[in-house]
């Protein structure tokens, strides 16, 4: 499993390059166009990342969570998770950038190869911004009665959080 995760990216890159050769794609040209799009995209998301890192750092450093969610501490301690994961799970369905900023904070404090670092990384990857996506897609066709979409979407997110915890525990103990 460890080896597989180490070679997955090289294999994907190799596979894509070979496939591109076979389909007679101008590899270099395509790469440049894509890389340019990536650069533009990075500049587009830069303001929101700066804004979110700034705000989340203020929030997390203020000790607010430690103070108000102290009653949850024993629970979090028995399962060996720092309480920082709580705001991350909470903002994940609303803003991907905000949860990314919190992930950055967690990796900075606990390191990417700690249990929490791995758990938080998995959390970030395992779901999308449910509330944002629903608002965007239903808004685009002016549907206001959305049935059980939000409830089920958030339920799926919750399942994703629980699954992340179980899976990371199994894989990395």
């Amino acid at each position: 499993m460890n080896l597989l995760s180490k070679i997955i990216i090289p294999i994907v890159v190799l596979g894509i390059t070979l496939y591109g050769f076979r389909k007679k794609v101008n590899l270099y040209e395509s790469f440049l166009i894509g890389a340019k799009e990536g650069l533009v995209m990075t500049f587009h998301i830069a303001p929101s990342i700066i804004a979110m890192v700034f705000a989340t750092n203020l929030f997390l450093n203020s000790d607010f969570i430690n103070y108000f969610f102290r009653f949850l501490h024993p629970l979090f301690q028995t399962i060996h998770i720092p309480i920082e994961i709580l705001p991350m799970a909470f903002v994940r369905p609303i803003s991907g950038t905000a949860s990314l900023a919190i992930l950055n904070n967690i990796l900075m404090i606990y390191g990417p190869d700690s249990f929490v670092g791995r758990l938080a990384s998995t959390l970030q990857g395992c779901t999308d911004t449910t509330i944002y996506v629903l608002a965007l897609y239903f808004g685009s066709i002016k549907v206001t009665k959305t049935g059980h979409a939000l409830g089920v979407g958030l339920f799926a997110d919750l399942m994703g959080i629980l699954a992340s915890f179980v899976i990371v525990s199994i894989f990395f103990g």
């Binding site: 890159v13 496939y19 591109g20 166009i33 894509g34 990536g38």
Partner: peptide, 10 residues
Amino acid sequence: TGVMKIAEDA
């Protein structure tokens, strides 16, 4: 994004 553009074009 560069690598994925190759994939897309293929």
